[in-house]
Nucleic acid binder design. Structure first.
Lengths: 137, 137
DNA sequence: GCACATGATAGGCGCATGCTTACGATTGAG
DNA sequence: CTCAATCGTAAGCATGCGCCTATCATGTGC
């Protein structure tokens, strides 16, 4: 592993490559990257505050608002004031939102599988294991 | 490998993490990310045109100009008109530039080694092999 | 009850980016 | 010789982002 680029350079190039692969998929479903991140986060579990959601996906909480507006208008998320604390908005996916996320994610996963298909399984597993470990908070 | 995030999400988070690690190093040496990319590219081999350099590091050729101005002013790169075609500027590192790149890169590599130190060698090697393959043009 | 903290929202500022256009110098093809 | 193409440079534009402030509604500790 002597002659290689810096990790940063390689990771950023890979990021760009993944972006190029994913963008058309997101465009086709009329969803921005941030919106997809929101759907993904809410699929794991509902959120009690928008601030927590923003922190969870590494977004600015003020920039998230138009994204949530749009998702709500399209009926993809629920966003209701918490009866027990009317400052906060409870966030959750609707059935439509869940369905759309599932559709998009499966397309993205197909693209990923395609990228990874050339590697020997041990490299691929090592790659994924290391990547998962490196991105654990 | 059933329950994992999308590759894109993980790769971008890792990119941010690497950025957080590298930025202080670059700042300490008064070098921007683009400038460091230029030094890295020129270390591999001199370049015959700025356009080729820009394409090589994935930058906009017009945005590269102030970066090159700065690097030249600091005596880190040479940038002379090609006698055989005076439209183009031959680009190369100076001794100082080579030295500075070497210093910065070794600090960055130390940070990378630290990040990767926890993994079993097989995972680490698979990770690097896959990453190298995925970023080959 | 009152001061203070928290959540959502709106707006603005500064920065880096990608993209585009224009221009002067130079080269090469016809 | 003339014209098109290439290279470097300057400038402008729209976008998206992070950050910061202010405002309003609400909740909590004293």
């Amino acid at each position: 592993m002597e002659e290689r680029e810096d990790l940063g350079a390689m990771v950023f190039r890979l990021g760009r490559r993944l972006l190029v692969m994913e963008q058309p998929i997101l465009d086709r479903h009329g969803v921005s990257m941030w919106a997809y991140a929101v759907l993904t986060a809410l699929r794991e579990s509902p959120m009690r505050t928008q601030t927590a959601l923003a922190a969870g996906i590494g977004a600015d909480k003020t920039r998230l608002i138009p994204v949530l507006d749009e998702l709500q208008k399209r009926g993809l998320i629920e966003r209701e004031p918490d009866p027990s604390d009317r400052r906060v908005r409870l966030l959750d996916l609707t059935a439509d939102g869940r369905r759309l996320h599932e559709t998009i994610q499966s397309e993205i996963r197909a693209g990923e599988a395609d990228l990874l298909s050339d590697f020997p399984p041990t490299d691929r597993d090592g790659f994924l294991r290391a990547l998962i470990a490196l991105t654990r908070r």
